[in-house]
Simulated scan of single mutants.
Amino acid sequence: MPATIPILDLGPLLEGRPGALEALGAELRRAFTEVGFYFVRNHGVPQPLIDAAFDAAARYHAQPLEAKLAMPFNEHNQGYLPMRGNTTRMNAVDGIKKPNMNEAVFFKRELPLDHPDVLAGKRFRAVNQWPANLPGFRETALEYAGAMEKLGKTLVPIYAAALGLPHDWFDDKFREPMFTLRMTHYPQQEPTSAEDEWGLAPHADTSFMTILAQNKVPGLSIRLPDGTWIDAPALEGCFLVNGGMMLRRWTNQLFLATPHRVTNRSGQERYAIPFFMDCSYDAVMAPIPTCVSKTNPARFQPFTYLDFMSEYSGANYGERGRSAAGVELQGA
């Protein structure tokens, strides 16, 4: 395994050992200023649940296309996105490529029909769509999302420590995090397929935090700050975590949003279950005070999850990413 990707051991933190948070904060700061990715081990998420989530993703995508299309991807970024259904634009690296060679289904926090945000029609706060004939699928997806949210909230104080902030600085901003569970299918790509056709084109994530379960089928590559691409190692019992453009903007560009890509030439079908976690819907993100100085003044205006994700969705999903008002928002 390349020594470039740090490994954070959560065991001491979960056991409540003195100084654990400060030590992890120093490791995370190095990870995000030098690499942009890190592993976590001893995270407390049961392996059988992770295996069940991978199995659920495979079961979902094994359905007939008609069953998947019955859950169309919508303006809330929920539902089924068909093969080659999006093109990486706003967060593209090295130019816009062909539409991505994958299919995916997206779920957010489970909200009831009578939730105030649902009744008010707030964008990205809608009711999930679920497959009609997959017994146990919904329960598995929600259990896995719940475990990922718990892990993400465990990690957030480490970010505060890494940034020289009080350990509870992010608490009010992550009271009810926005999140997306994406279950993706990458079909086999022929070795002779076009060089600019990717399972997922080189890009930076949008999220504050992406938590990725380790995949037995290879395909993920990471671009290090020196421009070198490396195949992401798969460490048993670990999650791979990275930050995206939201984290980079919030930290006034102190932390990296490292590009990565997926190509499946493994000879097998590949499934991925990334979990994207962000701050609460109404939290206002202004450049973090410890990331602003006379030599590095604030580079961005304050923004919210809705501001940021509306811009991203319109750029990358086109017609499917139109706002509720029907106006397509252009990416930067």
Rank of each mutant, 00 (worst) to 15 (best):
A141R: 00
Y38F: 15
K153H: 04
P116S: 08
V118D: 00
L65T: 12
A104W: 00
R223M: 14
G318F: 00
E15R: 14
A232W: 03
G321H: 03
N264L: 03
E22H: 08
F124N: 00
P225Q: 09
Y60F: 13
H260I: 05
A162P: 07
V241A: 09
F179G: 00
M90G: 11
A70S: 12
E269D: 15
G199C: 06
D171T: 12
A104I: 03
E103H: 05
G36P: 06
I158R: 01
E190D: 15
D171V: 09
D114T: 08
A67L: 14
T87K: 01
L151K: 05
D172P: 07
G25D: 04
V118N: 00
I211P: 00
A147C: 08
S313Q: 13
I7N: 11
L81I: 02
R59M: 08
D231T: 13
A160I: 05
L163I: 01
N264V: 02
G243R: 00
T4V: 15
M246V: 11
K108S: 09
T154F: 06
P112M: 06
A162Y: 04
K153S: 04
D196G: 09
E143S: 14
D51K: 11
S280L: 06
L113P: 13
H43N: 08
E176F: 13
H203K: 04
A286R: 11
Q78Y: 06
E75K: 02
D168N: 13
G121K: 06
N102Q: 14
D307R: 06
R265C: 03
L254K: 11
H43I: 08
S207E: 14
R223V: 08
C291V: 07
F255K: 01
A62D: 14
T304W: 06
P225S: 09
A3T: 15
W229M: 12
L81P: 00
R123K: 11
N42K: 13
V127R: 00
G318Q: 03
V156I: 13
E328P: 12
D282W: 06
M285S: 09
L240I: 07
G16I: 09
K294D: 15
L306W: 10
M245L: 15
G244F: 02
S193V: 14
T87R: 02
S280H: 06
K98C: 07
G331F: 03
G44P: 05
P233T: 06
R249Y: 01
V284P: 04
R265K: 11
E15P: 07
V262E: 02
L224R: 04
G36M: 08
Q301P: 11
G199P: 03
V292Y: 05
F303D: 05
D117E: 09
A120T: 11
F179Y: 10
T184W: 07
G85D: 00
P233S: 07
T154G: 08
T180Q: 08
D172Q: 13
G321R: 01
H203P: 02
P99E: 01
L235D: 07
